[in-house]
Write a protein that binds this DNA or RNA. Structure first.
Lengths: 167, 167
DNA sequence: TGACAATAGATGCCTAGGCAATTACTGTTA
DNA sequence: TAACAGTAATTGCCTAGGCATCTATTGTCA
């Protein structure tokens, strides 16, 4: 079998200070971004977790609970309940599919279309503000670093899965 | 009054694809890190949210609910309940301070000391794995980018606060 | 066709965070 | 010292995610 295996970096040992790590910094940056976005979305009656599904539906890029859950990196159970809340607010409605009666298609209501309208601009604003002073090259470098970390994470989890199932 | 105001970057506009943004990538990386850490911590009966407070207490760098909440970037209410769960598992105990009877001092039990023992090594492992292939210079660059984004976020929230209270 | 595996969605039980009270205590000031 | 503002911790009510389980439905294959 072909098994990608990367040699880990050696930047951290058991005596490092957690608050100096990339993980700690990254969590703080994400908290800053979500806090800023949440504050501006609350005027529109939305939360950080809710903009993704609404936007995907509006852009006609996802229709079902499973697709929305996959895009949001969460599971179907959490997505079901998130859609419950959006439906209770009258922003969307569920329609049982006729071709496959297991799947539920989700559609925006007029209120939902209205609620999502300004969201992309808000997200762009907050991201741009957090990137003040960055050159285009630095921004690209940042994204490449994050992509590499993401790929490393997938390899790590694949290895862990293999180890778990081997015993 | 002196008010830091930075010109925002111009990388994102209302028509960008969310999944190509630094925010989306960063959230995915954080999910990868927390998922890996959680998986390994679960063998020790701990969760990602719980290692921080336990470690701070063990290293004698925080003693009270307020201090632990500040370090964890959360509020005292959430921390109270998190400590409830740790206390229920027998990993720590609360002692009402005698100097100031408002404050509660938190101490590890023997079980708590044992539970936290391997955690720093696990965190270091997971971070190092996610940084496979990074040079020391790239790692330093990454941390400097994150620090700059964090500083930008603080300026942004300071500005928003000022605007909010001005109307 | 009838059994069976796979899939979509929903639900229950858990941890967890944000925000707004509320309670207990402390320090300050009239 | 009595009133008052500020602080520490807790609690209630909300959103939210992870995991296991359940139900309904579909496609497959003996």
């Amino acid at each position: 079998m072909t098994q990608h295996t990367l040699k880990s970096a050696n930047f951290y040992a058991a005596d490092y200070r957690a608050e100096d790590s990339v993980g700690f910094l990254m969590k703080a940056v994400m908290l800053s971004i979500t806090a800023s976005v949440n504050r501006r979305l609350s005027e529109h009656g939305l939360t950080y977790a809710q903009w993704g599904p609404l936007l995907m539906i509006q852009q006609r890029r996802a229709y079902t609970v499973a697709e929305l859950a996959r895009w949001s990196n969460t599971d179907a159970g959490a997505m079901t309940r998130l859609l419950d809340r959006l439906e209770a607010k009258g922003l969307l409605k569920r329609v049982r599919s006729t071709e496959d009666r297991r799947v539920v298609k989700v559609e925006l209501t007029t209120a939902g279309t209205h609620a999502i309208r300004d969201v992309p601009a808000i997200l762009a604003d907050v991201l741009n503000a957090h990137l003040s002073g960055f050159s285009k090259a630095e921004w690209e470098t940042m994204k490449s670093y994050l992509s590499r970390m993401l790929a490393n994470g997938e390899i790590l989890r694949a290895q862990t899965d293999a180890t778990d199932s081997a015993q």
